[in-house]
């Protein structure tokens, strides 16, 4: 359990560091007040905020792409095929985010190098460790997307994030099954707890 927690903390901290100000925006946007005024327009500032959120998610997807590349090398047979497939899905998510950000008037952030992402990953000693890391990658994504979807105000962006959360939840279910664990373990997927202000800022 302690190992699982530390892996998640590494991933979340990595995303927050990479996002920089963007992560701070995710943590602060709409905080405290759960109700967005129902008739407000989406202002330029709100669109910038949404773009910043998407840039943080884009970094998380870039990290997941590298992670699955590494996982695919540590597992074999049908698990390797699954890792390659999920890597393809993460690439499709990243591409969709890259297309969405300019529509909000902003520029997609460039990904870090693979080595920079790999430096934040735990050691993948064997097949089981690699699959457990894949669960953490998916849980981290679910948590980040769930946090983001409650904060974005641009409707078509919200719909995109919903389709990705559903896909990431499916990924987690398949990998959990490969580990012999319950595939739908909770009534509400939430991912790991969001980072605190000090971790995210």
């Amino acid at each position: 359990m302690a190992n699982e927690r530390s892996r998640r903390e590494i991933l979340v901290a990595s995303a927050a560091l990479a996002g920089g100000a963007s992560a701070a925006l995710i943590a602060s946007c709409g905080g405290g007040n759960s109700k967005t005024p129902s008739t407000e327009t989406v202002s330029t500032i709100q669109m910038q905020d949404d773009a910043a959120i998407l840039n943080t998610l884009l970094d998380l997807e870039s990290s997941a792409i590298v992670a699955y590349g590494l996982i695919a090398q540590r597992v074999s047979g049908r698990n390797a095929a699954l890792a390659r497939k999920l890597r393809g899905h993460e690439q499709a998510h990243a591409a969709a985010l890259r297309r969405a950000i300019p529509r909000l008037g902003q520029t997609p952030a460039a990904p870090k190098t693979a080595a920079e992402y790999e430096a934040t990953f735990p050691p993948l000693r064997d097949e089981r460790t690699a699959l457990s890391f894949a669960v953490d990658v998916e849980d981290t994504a679910i948590g980040a997307y769930a946090d983001a979807i409650a904060k974005v105000v641009t409707d078509n962006v919200r719909r995109l994030l919903a389709t990705i959360i559903a896909a990431e939840s499916e990924h987690a279910a398949v990998v959990l099954g490969r580990l012999g664990r319950p595939q739908a373990p909770a009534a509400f997927v939430t991912g790991p707890p969001p980072p605190t202000g000090s971790e995210g800022g």
Binding site: K35, I149, A162, A166, S169
Partner: peptide, 25 residues
């Protein structure tokens, strides 16, 4: 999720949708 403005409801519904997706798997 598209039509709701209450962020707590949006988040809860996203969580339920994710579990339904896992059930589908």
């Amino acid at each position: 999720i598209d039509a709701t403005v209450d962020s707590n409801v949006v988040r809860t519904n996203a969580g339920a949708m994710g579990t339904d997706a896992q059930q589908l798997v």
